[in-house]
Amino acid sequence: MKPDMTVEIGGLMLKNPVMTASGTFGYGEEFAPYVEIERLGAVVVKGLSPQPKEGNPPPRIMETTAGMLNAVGLENVGIRAFVDTKLPFLKGFDTVVVANIFGDTVDEYVEVASIAGTTEGIHAIEVNISCPNVKRGGLAFGADPAIAAEVTRRVKAVSERPVIVKLTPNVTDITVIARACEDAGADAVSLINTLLGLSVDIETRRPHIRNITGGLSGPAVKPVALRMVWETARAVSIPVIGLGGIMTAEDAIAFLIAGASAVQVGTANFVNPGVTMEIIDGIEDYLKRHDIASVRHLVGKLVVD
């Protein structure tokens, strides 16, 4: 029997639990030659701000052991250009479109959410709270539970669509932030964003990345991500979307078992642009092999003595 692959996130039905991670799948069209976009559970687009953003000076990326650092600087076309020029392409596919949003101030989050949360063809908002809070000396919005809650509440107030809050792992206790977002009305949380890192060229004694530090992603972060997903899934009752270093179906299944209701595939898209298709097929094969009727039955089934 064909297992039920559907999952539900904040009232939205996904045809399977495999989403793309923001910033690794462009606006969808970049991957159209390699991926059947309508087979994806959801497409999460590159982070959008009220105005276009130029991004950081290069070099922006560096390969590290089993992963990569990036400091792209949230370069994007801006929410309005996205709606006018990028969204029409995605509307042509029967899949869930999630607009990832960010701002330099809470008001900017509200500005972009008021468009993203009311535009036809955008089914949910994912709020990136890992960016620096300009008015608070650059500390990430997501590093302070009160600020994380404020952003969530204000975005939720203007959005007609479910709101997913994407959490930063660069905190002492991610469950405190997750609970604050849940209490403020978040429909789901996704984690983890990248881990802050540094790579040094010992010949020039300079950082490999112009921004000095960058976000670490790839298989190197997977055990950290799994641990945080497991902790968070036990701390909140809203769905948790797991991401961080997923390269294969086996990796994705581990996240589901640890408590994720859905997963996002990020850096792996750079290694194999068709990897999401293989992950969807691999999860389905696993369910058949273990005679599990629905992928939902797997969620949070970590066995601990």
Partner: peptide, 27 residues
Amino acid sequence: EERMACGVGACLGCAIKTIGSDGSTAY
């Protein structure tokens, strides 16, 4: 040539500063 991760325009890792005929710059 630049370091790049995806090659298809998604990672935005291989940015290069360009200048238009009107003097405006863009990555």
